[in-house]
Amino acid sequence: MNTVPPTRWALGGGGARGYGPRFAELVAQGEDIDGEARLADALVPRGARILDAGAGMGRVTAALRARGHDVTGIEPDPYLVEQSERTYPGLGLLPLDILETTPAALSEHERPTAYDLVVAVGNVFILLAEGTEVQALTRLRTLLGPRGRLLIGFHLTAGPAGSRTYSPDEFTRDAEAAGLTVDQRFGTYELHPANEEYAVWLLSVPASGQSGGGA
């Protein structure tokens, strides 16, 4: 049986457990927490297939479904999966780590195996298991359909407890090692210029590397 290494999030031992309840409270108060989802929505046609990787308590998955997309959310933390069901009943996040999310695993859950957009926001990539960044990027690349893209966002400084520092140069090298091209880098989900605090990335597979994906 294949096992995946514990993520930095998991190794935090509950230090970030305030995340789920905090966002649930914001949802209950009617606060705007859809910034990432609005950008994702603008990147795809109506009814797109979207994978929300590291979905947390499901806020992006829920927001994109409300906009009419076919969204699959994956989240390995059982606490957050439970939180997602309390906040968004019936959301149905799949309890999968990125490294476990193969076409076979998705098929077992009767979900698509190729996506128009893969979203990994909210610091997912600075909370991965140590040394698995290229592997995670490669895994997500294999789940892209024709002309599919990746939307990734994380703090460059002052990230959450237990997270790593991931410089733009290193991330770019890792993306290229995973067979991806950096199309754009922005500083916010409202597409402000790149800065030294936060990075929003759009990645794609070079035309020569397109495989067409599954169905």
Rank of each mutant, 00 (worst) to 15 (best):
M1Y: 12
P6C: 08
P6Q: 11
R8A: 07
W9I: 03
A10T: 08
G13P: 01
G13M: 09
G18W: 14
G20T: 10
G20D: 15
R22S: 15
V27E: 15
Q29H: 05
G30F: 11
E31V: 14
E31Q: 14
G35E: 13
A37W: 08
R38S: 06
D41F: 04
D41R: 07
D41E: 10
D41K: 06
L43D: 08
V44L: 06
R49M: 11
L51C: 03
A53E: 14
G58V: 15
T61Q: 15
A62S: 15
A62W: 12
L64S: 12
R65A: 11
R67F: 09
R67N: 11
G68E: 11
G68A: 05
G68K: 00
D70S: 15
V71F: 10
V71W: 10
E75R: 02
L80C: 11
L80I: 13
L80G: 08
V81W: 14
E82Q: 15
E82M: 14
S84V: 09
E85H: 12
R86L: 01
T87K: 08
Y88K: 05
Y88H: 15
P89D: 03
P89L: 14
L93E: 10
P95H: 05
P95Q: 10
L96G: 04
D97F: 06
I98G: 00
T101M: 03
T101Q: 02
T102D: 02
A105I: 06
A105T: 09
A105P: 04
L106C: 00
S107F: 05
E108H: 07
H109W: 10
P112C: 09
T113N: 02
L117R: 07
V119E: 08
A120V: 05
V121P: 02
V124C: 05
F125E: 04
I126E: 03
I126K: 01
E130N: 04
G131C: 07
G131V: 12
V134D: 03
Q135N: 01
L137W: 04
T138R: 15
R141Q: 07
G145C: 13
R149P: 02
R149A: 08
L156A: 07
T157D: 14
R164G: 01
T165G: 01
S167C: 08
S167A: 12
E170P: 01
F171E: 06
F171K: 05
F171P: 00
D174R: 07
D174C: 03
A177S: 12
A177T: 10
A177M: 07
L180C: 00
T181W: 00
V182R: 06
D183M: 09
Q184V: 05
F186M: 05
F186C: 02
T188K: 00
T188P: 00
Y189L: 11
L191N: 02
L191S: 10
H192L: 07
P193D: 15
N195D: 11
N195A: 04
E196C: 08
E197L: 05
A199E: 04
A199G: 11
V200T: 10
W201Q: 00
L203M: 03
L203T: 01
L203I: 06
P206T: 07
P206H: 08
G209A: 14
S211T: 13
S211N: 08
